[in-house]
Amino acid sequence: MNEINSRNSTILQVEDLKKYFPIRRGFFQRVTSWVRAVEKVSFIIKGGKTLGLVGESGCGKTTVARLILKLLEADGGKIIFAGQDITDLSEAEMKPLRKEIQIIFQDPYGSLNPRMTIGQAIAEGLKAAGIDNRSETQQRLEKLLKMVGMSPAGIDRFPHEFSGGQRQRIGIARALSVEPSLIICDEPVSALDVSIQAQIINLLKDLQEQLNLSYLFISHDLNVVGYLCDRVAVMYKGHIMEYSPADELFDNPVHPYTHLLLSAIPDSERSDISDMNTLGDEPANTLNPPAGCSFQDRCPISEDRCAQSEINFEKVGEDHLVRCWKTAKHGSYQFFS
């Protein structure tokens, strides 16, 4: 696995990924409209690095994850994993690659089978990867549990006997069991308490260093993303609005939506509630979006042109892309003073 994942090589490249879900109505279940969950999403994850995918609920983050895992078929675009185009691979062709991309879910309660001991749950992955020798399985299980900071003595216990943080560790051990090179972390710490959250974040960082893992870190928590990620893609209604190295994004945000998100972070640095910006209402649904920019209805600086033509990515700095013609041209704008 680690040959694939050498540093600075591209491990995953996603190009113009697209997924529409049909809305069916009436007796004949005819398709009456489409939910444009993901539209033209592109990004790159380098070996051993972490890309943060941030956005509000319903913006399509999880759909992107499911497309990459090929749990959903993309309607357009390309997914290139370690140099190989996997977009149209069949189930059988995909099988040897399955172990390379793993996922950790948000809810450690819902993602473990309550009737399986954690040993069984983790061993399932090993079996699928072709390890069914009993003593070897046992050895690997113990090693995995140690790796995620748990006592191997828990191997025969059931998920309900563990706390939320421990269950998340089990989820991580299960993902690691097949030695993946990319792990998709779908809000892995959102459901955890602060003290446990720090443990899991440290664990994810340690594992990345030891095993040279790459992460796609999906989150709505910009504090965690700012701490953990090397690059960030900001998503809104199925589009990537801004894509940049993490430091650059936090220091010089360009897109109005990024400004909105950053100003809504409750952190202890800015101390007054009136600093928090509350632009517009929540995002409307992704059904029948207007032409042009998907953010236009909440944007403080939108003009007629925003509603006319499709907005493309523009380069505003080294590795810094933004889907907004206006700010790209005039530089960052003081949106909220």
Binding site: S195, A198, I201, G226
Partner: peptide
């Protein structure tokens, strides 16, 4: 608790975990 909060300023440092 305060030391275990992740944020951008603590990047590169290890988070304190209780």
């Amino acid at each position: 608790l305060l030391a275990s909060l992740p944020n951008r300023e603590k990047r590169g440092q290890r988070l304190y975990s209780i």
